[in-house]
Simulated assay, not measured.
Amino acid sequence: MPVTRDIVATYRGPRRVVRRLLDVGPREDRALVILVAACGMTFIAQWPRLAREAHLTGQELNPLLGGTLLAWVFIAPLIFYTLALLSHGLARVLRGRGTGYGARLALFWALLAASPIILLHGLVAGFIGPGPGLQIVGLIWLGIFGWFWIAGWIEAEWGRR
């Protein structure tokens, strides 16, 4: 199924989508591509905010973009791998039967599936700026990401075998 259809299907039932991705079998290349795509989308979502910041402060845009690229495409994946390891460790303590791959896939998929909301957040940050609208969209993203991650994590660690 195309990624866009899987993202839409995740908003209807995140556990089903994660189960379907897990049923393909452990494919670390797929998990890495999902993570890199999610981090890339988050990097792109930062462009309007960075352009606004550069315009309002008189800074050059390119160094801002370069720093954000370094953070989201090179450093953030390492952090997300560590976070997935910690979540799998917590599941093991709670008698989870899943694998490290399942924990990684659940986290990485939640990031990618919530990317439309992070793109909206970037647009609000760029065109409206700081304020209640930006905070509301940020809270919506956090809630949706948390829902996707927890549902996928439960499926990966305690779902059917």
Score class of each variant (00 low, 15 high):
G146W: 06
W72G: 01
R19T: 01
S87R: 05
E60F: 13
R5Y: 02
F148I: 01
A113P: 03
G133D: 08
L50T: 02
W153H: 15
I140M: 10
L119G: 06
R95L: 14
I118N: 11
Q59I: 01
P132N: 11
F127A: 12
G40R: 06
V24Q: 12
V137R: 00
L112I: 07
T42P: 00
R16C: 01
L32K: 04
W153I: 06
V73A: 13
L32A: 14
A9W: 00
F80S: 04
I44D: 00
D6H: 01
Q46P: 04
V36S: 07
G138W: 02
V124Q: 04
L119Y: 07
L134W: 07
W149H: 12
R95D: 14
V124L: 12
L120N: 01
R20D: 14
T82D: 03
T68M: 15
T82G: 15
L85F: 15
L64N: 03
A84P: 10
A91W: 06
V17A: 00
E60W: 11
R97P: 03
A91L: 09
W153Q: 14
F80Q: 11
A31I: 07
L35A: 11
A45P: 05
V8G: 06
A151F: 02
R161W: 06
A38D: 02
T99I: 09
P116Y: 04
A103G: 15
P63G: 12
L142Y: 06
I118T: 14
L78K: 02
T99H: 10
G129E: 07
L119K: 06
L32D: 07
P132K: 10
P116H: 03
Q59N: 13
L21M: 12
V36H: 03
G143N: 04
L86M: 14
L94P: 01
P26Y: 04
A103E: 03
G131S: 11
H55R: 14
Q135Y: 10
P14K: 08
I75W: 11
P14W: 02
E53Q: 13
R92G: 07
V24A: 14
R5V: 08
L107P: 03
A91P: 08
G143I: 03
Q135N: 13
F43D: 08
W158N: 09
L105T: 05
C39Y: 03
P14G: 09
I79D: 00
W109P: 08
A113L: 06
A113S: 12
C39H: 05
L134D: 04
F43W: 15
P26R: 11
S87P: 01
N62P: 05
Q135C: 04
F127L: 14
I79A: 14
V3H: 00
L22D: 05
A45S: 15
T10W: 01
L107E: 00
P63D: 08
W72T: 05
A37N: 01
P26A: 15
G143E: 01
E53I: 11
V18C: 09
D6V: 00
H88F: 15
P77Q: 07
E157K: 01
R15L: 02
P14C: 11
A110Q: 07
Q135L: 15
L85D: 09
T99F: 12
E157I: 03
G13S: 14
L86P: 03
L123G: 13
P63C: 11
L94K: 10
H88W: 15
